[in-house]
Computed example of a mutant assay.
Amino acid sequence: MSKLVISTSSFDVDSNPHIQHLLQEGMHIASNSHGRKLTEDEAIELLGADAVGMIAGIEPLTERVFASAKSLKVISRCGSGLDSVDLAAAKRHGIAVLNTPEAPAQAVAELAMGLILSALRRICRTDRLLRAGEWPRTQGQLLAAQVIGIVGFGRVGRRVARLCQAFDAEVIAHDSYVEQAPEGVKLVPLEKLLAEADVISLHLTYDAGTHHLLDADAFARMKPGAVVINTARGGLIDEVALAEALTSGQLGAAALDVFEQEPYHGPLLKCDQAILTSHIGSLARESRQCMEIEAAENLLRGLGNAGLIKDGLIKNV
């Protein structure tokens, strides 16, 4: 029987017309039952040797995974980032890799804005103190008075810039691949951004060159009391160094939605100045629906290109 793997645990199979069509056509769906990101071994087990297509999350899709998944022809990533996929290995094994870069962008940008405002106005800490029986008169900071530094000026970074500008904040940005910024945004070298920004928000891809882009040295070069936001990828930040910078008072706050290891169990859990969310950037209902529909459309197109579907009907699988 034909098999499709859906590894992202929050995928709404019942409301996706494309997946429902495949089910009606006899496609078997194997889902992630762990409620979290799969390990490499778990991905191998779920795919088996008979999966022809995969709607993927952020689990590691490596040479070892592809060598084991001998029938796999299409990976449709439910999301934008492809850093968890060994693209060279996928090409060697003849596996098409597709993604949904546009659908989650607004949701991630809005979460970044929520985290920026929560960090500046100390919303989460004030809530905790009130629930503990206190009545804190917490003094925060105005977004309008801050210099916002955006590292990575693509789909999400540009949206965050516009949202910050709507609050009358000054915005500077760094992106090695962008030569011209929109009106009101100044492109600067990374060193200048780290030194001048009050809030630094990461919106770039993760690879070997950006691993621990923000480390102890980078934190030391930031303004005392600066705020760090990460809704991109966990590996961009040295989390141990971040916890130390928060504890020492070098940084005023940090807000992270992504971590090197998820679920997260590291030292930031003990930092009152840290706001931590569980990789929910794309989990806005409207955005998530669009992303899942687009991922399923990509899968169907990929299966069609591989000759496994014709005129909406499964064949030769």
Rank of each mutant, 00 (worst) to 15 (best):
S9C: 12
H18E: 15
L22T: 01
Q24V: 13
S33M: 12
K37A: 06
A51E: 08
V52I: 13
A56W: 02
L61N: 03
V65Q: 02
A69R: 09
L72C: 08
G79M: 05
A88G: 05
A88H: 01
A90S: 07
I95P: 03
N99A: 09
P101Y: 00
P104M: 10
A105Q: 00
L111F: 01
A112K: 10
L115A: 04
R125H: 05
E134M: 12
P136T: 11
T138V: 13
Q139Y: 14
A144N: 10
I148W: 03
G152N: 00
G154M: 08
R158F: 00
Q165T: 07
E179T: 12
E179I: 11
V185F: 09
L187T: 06
E191G: 08
E196L: 10
L202E: 01
D207M: 07
L214I: 09
V228S: 00
L236R: 03
D238R: 06
E239C: 03
E239I: 06
L242Y: 07
A243F: 05
G249R: 04
A253W: 04
V258Q: 01
F259T: 09
F259Y: 15
Q261Y: 06
H265S: 14
L268R: 11
S278C: 12
S282D: 12
A284T: 13
R285S: 15
E286M: 07
M291A: 05
I293P: 00
A295K: 09
A296M: 07
G304P: 02
N305G: 07
